[in-house]
Design a protein around this nucleic acid. Structure first.
Length: 779
DNA sequence: ATAGGGTTAG
């Protein structure tokens, strides 16, 4: 596009020969040198040519009755450097002053329209050109078709193109770059072929506008053909063509070619550097990206541009290299680039990926211009770091600020709903996505499916899954995982077999989904079968995560010794998570000896998590070794591990009510207490006995009962009973795993209240009905 | 010619 304007610039008639408008009489100073171009005219020309648009404008404003040529010059300057809207303002002022635009004015105006993606305005300008009888002008019609194509109206662009009596290479390039701009790969290639059939050979502009689509479509072979053509036509030495080729190879993941082109370039400009650094990022070579950045800054003494900073920050984010990221932040501040929205967005994402949400949020506050990307970055950052509630709050801020959420915002927000089991919010996101047409996007549907599954509405998940137009492996994985966490192993396996039959290749996550389904449902045989055959039959080699699933499966099913020998036979060193899976089963099975051994292993490996201390101390309590339990809790305190409080929440008509253990802060606290005591009496009548294993001290039976009665999930359920209709099911979500006592108590509660009660804990759904949980006590 | 945010599991 820019090249095509450049060629036209050369053909602009010399202003000296242009007819001049008569000057106003009242400016003697200007009139004085009437015969020659005035010094002010020359100044405007000089500044405009140097892209010093504001200076040019300053001078221009002092000229009383500028000629069309000068108007054109100013309009072109803005259309080139922006602010684009200024071109349009000047055009309107020109009309007010009854200066008639000529055939050179329109291409510049239309270029501004393309940049602004303002098709309505483009149409008005089109009409104006028609009334001036310029429809046959080659430049004007080329500019018109270019504008329509860039704004996405290919029909109009095509109509103009077809109606042209004469087409030069610029017209061809215009329509080609329009299609290429919108990533219509096949149509673009077809046009290039037609162009050649029409006897016009593609020039370097054609190549340059062609290459981005080729890269985008990963069409390496075509790219090579174009490369060869560029060599034959000796375009390939051109920096612009070479950069395009470099970028194309990088997008096709052909790094070595990209590097060769980069190294062979004699004069590298900043765009080459950014293309190469960006190329490394595309190809997942983050270390190389950072090394090249350092070479550029510290060896070649170049200043990073916003584009380069954005790419390099992305590399830091992927590596979670906080030091380098902070270093870049310093660069931004020093070079005054910290008000650039794009760079700022990358910076937010970098801090979020490194887990420093405070800095990410702080920077968001400082940002002068926040766009949907800024909000999306922060929202997904919050969710990734476990602050789903903050994510929802930020989303409210985003709405108040008038920034329209886009599909990426939804992809960030939907997991927040999943995490919170906030069904009402989730439904809103779903509805909004449908209205905005996002549901054509596979990732959006995937996030929606996951949201319904995690909010307890697994049948709606399946409904969405069945109706989406294109499923990828993630869609299948999410659906299988969904069935798995609901304990619906029959559905999970039937879907898995459907997947195998469909010809789509399962990936490593699919197998994690299958294995964890097995462990949730106690399917030891099936789990072993898929674990043993996955590497041969599906050519997926098991990772640590798969081993964790297997240990979990064996140990939960009670085969503690087998789990132990399985760990010993692992081809790599087991990490803390493997041992934790075993420890947790030791606790469930009250196996103190093995628990102690495992606990020692964990202490050697470190760093540990609080959960393991709690497991071990509970294990001691369950067999009455209160002193040992207390000793473990002391170590935990000394080493600075805080027990994260058990927390449960429930959504009632779109509002989330959260409770921690022993919580008496809710406004309805008195009613909740009464309800709990009432339930306790009824439960005991039916044979309920408090499970002492989870109470740390050797206390009286009654006291135990009362401590256990105020576990957060019980409070949330009581609150749910009080605030929903008697026949309604209840869904409560808990941040940790449900404890044995609550699991037992909820069974009684379903009998007393004749309701379905669902508890989603950290690992799965427990659907309680008629005194039974569908997990069959595997968890 | 180059650039920002994004779905699953462990």
């Amino acid at each position: 596009m820019r090249r095509y304007l450049r060629s036209k610039e050369a053909s602009i008639p010399n202003p000296k020969n242009q007819p001049r408008l008569p000057h106003t009489q009242n400016n003697r100073h200007y009139q004085h040198m009437n015969n020659q171009p005035h010094i002010l005219d020359n100044l405007v020309r000089l500044y405009a040519a140097r892209n010093q648009t504001e200076l040019a404008r300053h001078v221009f404003d002092q000229i009383p009755n500028p000629s069309v040529v000068l108007w054109n010059m100013m309009i072109r300057a803005y259309a080139w450097t922006g602010p684009f809207l200024q071109s349009i303002h000047l055009y309107h002022r020109m009309l007010q002053l009854r200066v008639t635009p000529n055939n050179f004015t329109f291409p510049f105006l239309l270029k501004a329209c393309s940049a602004l993606q303002a098709i309505q305005l483009g149409r008005q300008i089109h009409d104006h050109a028609l009334t001036l009888g310029l429809q046959a002008d080659l430049y004007v019609s080329t500019a018109l078709l270019d504008m329509y194509a860039k704004c996405g109206n290919f029909f109009e662009a095509r109509t103009i193109f077809d109606s042209m009596s004469h087409r030069d290479i610029v017209s061809w390039n215009a329509i080609i770059s329009g299609f290429s701009f919108h990533a219509f790969h096949k149509q673009t290639i077809r046009l290039v072929v037609q162009m050649q059939l029409a006897g016009i050979a593609p020039n370097s502009s054609t190549i340059v506008s062609l290459l981005p689509t080729v890269g985008h479509a990963n069409a390496l072979c075509q790219g090579k053909v174009i490369h060869a053509y560029s060599v034959r036509r000796i375009f390939s030495h051109d920096v612009v063509v070479a950069t395009g080729l470099l970028d194309m190879y990088a997008k096709c993941h052909h790094l070595s070619y990209a590097q060769k082109i980069f190294n062979a370039l004699n004069q590298k400009n900043e765009i080459c550097w950014s293309a190469m650094i960006g190329g490394y990022v595309i190809c997942d070579s983050m270390r190389d990206a950072l090394a090249l950045y350092d070479a550029m800054v510290y060896m070649h003494g170049l200043n990073p541009t916003p584009v380069i900073l954005a790419s390099t920050l992305r590399a830091c984010a992927k590596l979670t290299d906080l030091n380098k990221g902070k270093n870049l932040h310093c660069h931004m501040i020093k070079s005054g680039i910290n008000s650039d929205t794009t760079v700022g967005n990358s910076l937010i994402s970098m801090y979020a990926k490194c887990g420093i949400m405070d800095d990410a949020l702080g920077f968001l506050d400082e940002m002068i211009i926040k766009d949907s990307v800024s909000y999306s970055a922060i929202i997904s950052g919050c969710v990734q770091n476990g602050y789903a509630e903050t994510a929802v709050l930020i989303f409210r801020q985003m709405q108040l600020s008038g920034t329209d959420p886009d599909s990426a915002t939804m992809i960030g927000l939907l997991p927040a709903c999943s995490h919170l089991a906030a069904l009402q919010h989730g439904i809103c996101c779903h509805g909004y996505s449908v209205v905005r047409g996002f549901t054509a996007n596979t990732s959006i549907c995937n996030a929606i499916i996951d949201m319904y599954a995690k909010c307890g509405k697994i049948h709606i998940s399946r409904h969405v899954f069945d109706r989406m137009n294109k499923r990828d492996i993630v869609s299948w994985n999410i659906m299988i995982i969904g069935y798995g966490i609901h304990g619906l192993y029959v559905e999970a396996f039937s879907l898995f077999h459907e997947l195998l039959a469909s010809g789509m290749k399962p990936d490593d996550v699919t197998l994690i989904a299958v294995l964890s389904t097995c462990s949730h449902s106690g399917l030891v045989m099936e789990g072993k079968y898929w674990f043993n055959t996955m590497s041969q039959d599906l050519s997926i080699s098991p990772r640590m995560a798969h081993y964790i699933c297997m240990v979990d499966l064996l140990a939960r099913a009670g085969n503690l010794d087998e789990a132990c020998s399985f760990i010993q036979k692992m081809p790599f060193e087991p990490d803390v998570r493997v041992w934790s899976a075993l420890l947790s089963a030791c606790r469930t099975r009250n196996n103190v000896e093995m628990g102690e051994q495992v606990s020692k292993k964990i202490q050697l490996l470190g760093p540990e998590s609080t959960g393991n201390f709690v497991l071990m101390s509970n294990l001691y309590s369950s067999v009455g070794r209160w002193d040992d339990a207390a000793y473990i809790r002391n170590i935990q305190k000394h080493q600075g591990y805080k027990k994260s409080p058990g927390c449960s929440w429930i959504e009632i008509s779109g509002v989330i009510h959260g409770f921690i253990g022993g919580d008496r802060s809710h406004p309805q606290s008195v009613a909740i207490n009464n309800k709990l005591q009432e339930l306790l009496v009824q439960m005991k009548k039916m044979g309920y006995q408090a499970d002492s294993g989870f109470v740390f001290h050797d206390v009286e039976e009654e006291e135990k009962e009362q401590i256990l009665l105020y576990h957060s999930e019980k409070i949330a359920i009581a609150f749910g009973i009080l605030n929903t209709r008697p026949s309604n099911p209840i869904l409560v979500t808990k941040n940790l795993r449900i404890c044995v006592d609550c699991h037992n108590a909820v069974k009684f509660m379903t009998l007393i209240t004749e309701r379905k009660i669902t508890v989603r804990d950290a690992s799965r759904f427990h659907h309680f009905e008629n005194g039974i949980c569908n997990c069959r006590d595997f968890w």
